[in-house]
Nucleic acid binder design. Structure first.
Lengths: 205, 205
DNA sequence: AAATAATGAATGAATGTTCATTTTATTTTG
DNA sequence: CAAAATAAAATGAACATTCATTCATTATTT
């Protein structure tokens, strides 16, 4: 009884709803992979369909059009990412404790889900996703902003704009992931710790 | 004798070489503007030509094709940017003095030439420019890397990877420019000073 | 048997690029 | 210096191709 047989049984006994979920996920995976390596302009729906193991027409059962596909992928990835990053958030804990946990979880997620991280970096720096969609994505950052505000109030964190705080603590991680993906540079655990120190040093009072 | 007349005289007396330079620059300007607001995939050569006040065919006199256009724009903008930023570099001066001057000039340039800054941010985070072209662009950062090395040797700057140093001092500026361009956030002189402090705090020992 | 999901060839609009022609600039000649 | 000849630059309509999207048909699930 080999693995293919088991997979076959799974596929046969699965409800349609579950199969659809799998198919939709395959399309999203393919989008992440191709947009990351070729860019939005060079990823035709046909290639996307082929990589996802699906017919071009099928994509249009799950997404309105190409723009809608990118928008939805962006939003869903962003939500998944922030859910993971802020799962341990407890407002009653110390500011630095919360911040440190968030920061390390953000880094861990981006290192684990490189395709998603690269995709977000691309979307956040280009006009490939619609502006209103990007706005929606920002909402999910609330816990981080909350912690930063608390830190400012308590005099632990510099009293500077949220944008500055975000710029100096979070965006460097994205840059480092992009670099790690692009060449030999390796973000090992020691570098991660050094990065955290730099992040904290840049905003602590 | 109005301005149009003067312009007309200029155009008439100008050498062909100078006219070509102006035309080429117009194409580059148009590329920056359209790629920034619409993305590479949504800027057809026809629109580019129209905005540059040129016929589509003319673009192909100055650039091999669309990809070559983007590559060349990237390289030339990068070089212009770094030339400006490192013009005051004097290896014999103090590390912090050199670093501060470089940092402020980088910030000033990006604030002054927003279109160029946004374009670089887009190219640095997506596969729109060819990888070998991006590599070429990195060479121009040598002075900054040199100063950082000197700082590490003298124990003034943390002994961490160049990538980390760059990530925490320079990339936040790009992010802030993108944000300023996207909404109401304003990078005023006070914010710039705060940003510099954060940059320095993140890497100084 | 009915309903739902998936297919993929066909369509038509959009777009990168070419090239025969025209316009403009420069050089040569009378 | 002016006119003719040559060279260079620019044009933009035409072309070939690509690609997003549709829909009549087939396959699968309920």
């Amino acid at each position: 009884m080999n693995v293919h047989f088991i997979l076959y049984i799974c596929m046969v006994t699965m409800k349609q709803e579950e199969k659809s979920k799998i198919k939709r996920d395959a399309i999203i995976k393919a989008t992440l992979a191709l947009v990351n390596s070729n860019g939005f302009h060079a990823t035709p729906m046909s290639k996307l369909a082929k990589l996802a193991g699906v017919s071009p027409g099928t994509i249009y059962l799950y997404f309105e059009n190409k723009q809608d596909l990118v928008n939805k992928v962006y939003l869903e990835v962003k939500e998944k990412f922030t859910k993971y990053s802020f799962v341990n958030y407890q407002p009653e804990l110390e500011v630095e404790e919360n911040f440190k946990d968030m920061w390390y979880r953000i880094a861990a997620y981006k290192l684990k889900e490189i395709d998603e991280a690269l995709f977000l970096a691309q979307c956040d720096n280009t006009p490939v996703v619609d502006e209103n969609i990007r706005q929606e994505g920002i909402v999910h950052l609330t816990p981080l902003i909350e912690v930063m505000h608390k830190g400012k109030n308590e005099g632990i964190i510099k009293d500077i704009s949220d944008y500055l705080l975000y710029a100096y603590t979070i965006t460097p991680i994205s840059f480092l992931i992009v670099m790690q993906n692009r060449e030999a540079y390796n973000l090992d655990p020691k570098s991660i710790d050094e990065a955290y120190e730099s992040a904290w040093d840049s905003i602590r009072k």
